[in-house]
Design a protein around this nucleic acid. Structure first.
Ligand SMILES: [Zn+2]
Ligand SMILES: [Zn+2]
Ligand SMILES: [Zn+2]
Ligand SMILES: [Zn+2]
Lengths: 161, 161
DNA sequence: TTGACCTTGTGATGTTATAACATACACAAT
DNA sequence: ATTGTGTATGTTATAACATCACAAGGTCAA
């Protein structure tokens, strides 16, 4: 069942959202972190579409719902969720996306479709990079791995574009 | 001689700058691209320190030298240099750095020291990611691979910090 | 009740990046 | 000489992304 790692295939989304929220709640309880209404709602918003959203897009949703209107509200909630590992930041897009492996060990990689904007999360530790780091004495703490290209759907519809 | 791939070791910098500029000039001549004064100077500025610089830092240097004062001047020159492969953009830092493998085939990875800001360029194609892309039918066009951590020097001086 | 700590509200500001339009120059065709 | 075309540059304005600084509330334990 590769859909939860590759993300370009359809899946049972409503159960996926519920499961992710439950996992977040459980993990917060365990680590005594507070999944407050704003934080929970931001996670929910990101889960609703699996798309990457900018902080200001999230903020607009919060504002419409009366949960906050100023940038720090969104950035704080997103920061919390990223710290907890429930959300990932996509550097290439200056955007955020809900994790699709809630609870799993994390060294995520992303495939970003430049045509439709779809982002798929994969597990793809970079062994060559780890080797290069070891060789040069670099202490590797975190890695950003983001690939840009065309998702299966956009390859067929749009030719090479 | 790993210093040109790993970047944490010292090297003959003045010759490295000269060589990079010569390579850029040669490649531009071959591809009929114009290495204009502003473009050449921006490349030089990035080569002077091997540090990653923000576009506005570069712009400040240009401004001081009377080569331009408005953001598009810097962004255009940087965009040109990135397109030509002489400069890489570091997504994690929203910054730019001169390529340390001028002319070589390019699938660069970077190691970024979170303490001193040093950035080293390495070659580290991600085989696992290529495999994942192939498996899911994703057409992989470009990859961003950036690692954050501590360089050798900062590990010894600052403990874990 | 007080203080420590965490979270939120809000105004102001800082930083990064591009859109849009005008100008200048080189070089070729008329 | 003039006009056209393409590339590069100059300039204004604004979009888009992110943080600072300070005030206010809530919880909980001393
Ligand atoms: Zn889903
Ligand atoms: Zn994840
Ligand atoms: Zn050098
Ligand atoms: Zn360092």
């Amino acid at each position: 069942m590769p859909s939860d790692t590759l993300g370009f295939e359809s899946h049972d989304h409503s159960s996926c959202v519920v499961a992710a929220l439950e996992t977040a709640e459980r993990q917060c309880k365990e680590s005594k972190a507070q999944l407050t209404p704003v934080r929970r709602r931001v996670l929910e918003i990101l889960l609703e579409s699996h798309a990457a959203m900018g902080a200001y897009d999230v903020l607009a949703r919060l504002d419409a719902e009366g949960l906050g209107s100023k940038p720090p509200v969104a950035y704080r909630a997103l920061g919390f969720l990223v710290d907890q590992g429930f959300v990932h930041r996509i550097e290439r897009l200056n955007a955020f996306i809900a994790c699709t492996h809630p609870g799993a060990s994390h060294d995520p990689a992303f495939m970003i479709c430049r045509e439709c904007g779809l982002v798929a999360e994969a597990q793809a530790a970079n062994l060559a990079l780890q080797q290069a780091a070891a060789d040069s004495g670099f202490l590797l703490e975190q890695t950003v791995i983001e690939a840009e290209g065309l998702c299966p759907a956009c390859q067929t519809t749009g030719a090479t574009a």
